[in-house]
């Protein structure tokens, strides 16, 4: 298994011996990993290697069969996506999970709407002013410029929508951001912009786990890269040293064969 650097003061997430069985299918065969403050960790692997199952476990969507997850030093049992969110684990889904008919500010606050103080709030009245103000603030700190946060989200381009999804995930005290193929549907220029957003999140000391098939992009963005193969993490690579060719050898299992 992967050897972990012993200096663990900055560890945000620690996963130990996580497995997941679907009947006879073993999607995860014992995963160990650590994520530290402010780093961007790439998670690569072929289709079926277990990346999505692992992200599912971390985002609370999937319950592991065995193993432990420690978050900020505390053992946690992630029972649902909203539980994970409450802990500060945010996920940017491949399909973005935006309600396009809603205004931008509403998407940024969806599921955590602010209500007015007092009786009106108890009746469910929204504090739109506060949400619009904090939405503008969030976009400012994320350095995303969008005309008006009151515009319908469907009026945005693909890259802008991606930015909103990222901004939502990184807003308000998020402590770990999971990104599942955030650039798969984007053009080159927009991919570049999302990459900048990812770095920006890490710069705020929030770690990011990035799943991507785009290996050049993974090399460019990530501080280290974990390779999954048949339900295990088989390698931890330094993108500064290892090239795309080497990653592919690990992803396809060729590197494992030659080391044996």
């Amino acid at each position: 298994m992967t050897t972990i650097d012993p200096s663990t003061a900055d560890v945000v997430l620690r996963v130990t011996g996580v497995t997941k069985h679907y009947g006879h299918v073993q999607a995860l065969r014992g995963v160990d990993m650590e994520v530290r403050r402010g780093e961007v960790v790439g998670l690569v692997g072929d289709n079926g290697a277990g990346k999505s199952t692992l992200i599912g476990v971390l985002s609370g969507a999937t319950t592991p069969t065995e193993g432990a997850v420690e978050f900020e030093g505390e053992p946690v049992s992630l029972s649902s996506p909203s539980h994970a969110r409450d802990l500060g684990i945010e996920t940017v889904y491949q399909d973005l999970a935006l309600a396009l008919d809603l205004p931008i500010w509403a998407n940024l606050h969806l599921g955590r709407e602010q209500r007015r103080p007092g009786l009106l709030g108890a009746l469910g009245f929204l504090d739109k002013k506060a949400m619009i103000a904090s939405a503008e603030e969030e976009l400012r700190t994320t350095r995303i410029r969008i005309g008006s946060v009151d515009a319908r989200t469907s009026a945005l381009s693909g890259g802008q929508r991606q930015a909103i999804a990222v901004a939502r995930a990184t807003a308000r005290g998020s402590k770990l951001v999971l990104m599942d193929e955030p650039t798969a549907a984007l053009g080159v220029e927009q991919q570049h912009r999302v990459g900048e957003l990812v770095r920006h999140v890490a710069d705020r000391d929030v770690p990011v786990i990035l799943i991507s098939h785009n290996l050049p992009q993974v090399r460019e963005l990530c501080d280290r890269v974990l390779v999954m193969y048949r339900g295990r993490i088989v390698a931890e690579l330094d993108p500064a040293i290892e090239g795309v060719e080497s990653m592919i050898r690990w992803i396809t299992g060729a590197a494992l064969e030659s080391e044996r």
Binding site: M1, V40, E196, R232
Partner: peptide, 25 residues
């Protein structure tokens, strides 16, 4: 099974000027 050791150095912060405005046009 074996794995590679690697540096845990962090990439440099991105320059603010690199942050482009999305789709101004």
């Amino acid at each position: 099974m074996s794995a590679k050791r690697l540096l845990m150095g962090r990439k440099q912060p991105v320059e603010t000027t690199m942050m482009t405005t999305l789709d101004d046009a």
